[in-house]
Amino acid sequence: MNHFVFRVLCIVLVVVINSEIGASVAYGGDCSSTACTDTTTNECIDDLCACATTHFRNNDDSACETKIGFETSCDNTVTATDQCSVANQECSLESGTTYKCLCTAAYYSAGSACVAKIGFETSCNNTVTATDQCLVANQECSLESGTTYKCLCTAAYYSDGSACVAKKNPDIACTATGQCITNAECDVGGTDKCECNAGYTETPTVSPTTCSGVVKFATLPYMYVVPILVSMMFLLR
């Protein structure tokens, strides 16, 4: 038997012996032809032993640990980005110093899963208890008409077609109806500003922020106010 044949036989023998005694490879090893040592927390992914899909690698790279469940407390110091078991969740601050696996910004909690938030002025489900199902800021699931619910701007905001803009105060320039605060309308084609409705007064008089239902006599010239008050006193005698 020549030397080359002998080497080949030895290699084959080693492979057979390893397979018989259960040879395996550790985390990070080549598992293309050999099983991973830890079959509970590891699995062969792309020919390498890696953490199973139900596990994540801990900070000191010593073991694969079980992923954290839905809205359960997590460790924000963990460098692994996949410690949460539910899709579209991440370890986020809930309140105070409490961190939990919570839905990412583009998703809302549906109780056991994270669902993609609803787009601008798109149909929504008014039976959903989550208050953040609408993707755009300052929108909520509201009745549009009939039985149709959509993600619409809240009362203090108006739609500009792609976002919700804060409604304008009196004396502020506007371009269309619905852009002004309560008890005010846009005087389109006139002053092109938000004007208080009839029976309402700009309050305060300088840089007004509301339209109140109280008539301000102080806004009349003083020379007219005094005679009016005197006449009222005379009639009440």
Rank of each mutant, 00 (worst) to 15 (best):
D30H: 05
G161R: 12
V5R: 04
I68N: 03
N169G: 03
V225N: 10
D160W: 07
T37M: 10
T104H: 05
T147Q: 02
V5T: 09
D82A: 01
I45P: 01
L143G: 03
A63G: 07
K216R: 12
E195D: 04
S207K: 09
T81M: 02
S123E: 14
T177S: 10
Y108A: 12
G111T: 12
Q133G: 09
I228M: 13
D187V: 00
Y149T: 04
V8M: 10
K150Y: 04
C10E: 12
V115Y: 01
Q83L: 09
T127E: 14
C64A: 08
S212H: 07
T34N: 07
G146V: 11
S231F: 11
T81K: 03
C114P: 14
I21W: 07
Y149Q: 03
N42W: 02
A35F: 03
I17Y: 12
Y224A: 14
G69W: 05
G189D: 06
L152E: 09
C194N: 11
L152F: 08
C114A: 13
T147G: 15
A87T: 14
Q83A: 04
Y200N: 07
N2D: 15
V225W: 06
D192E: 13
T191S: 15
N59H: 00
T34F: 11
R237P: 00
S62G: 09
T201L: 05
A173V: 13
A130N: 13
I17L: 15
E71G: 01
L13K: 10
T122L: 02
N138P: 03
T203N: 06
C44Y: 02
Q83C: 01
F234T: 11
G22V: 10
T72D: 12
C151P: 12
I228W: 03
V128P: 00
T53C: 00
G29V: 09
V214E: 14
M1W: 08
M1F: 09
T129W: 06
L235C: 11
D160E: 13
D61E: 10
L48P: 00
D171E: 14
C114G: 14
Q83G: 02
T97Q: 10
F217E: 08
P170R: 09
G28N: 07
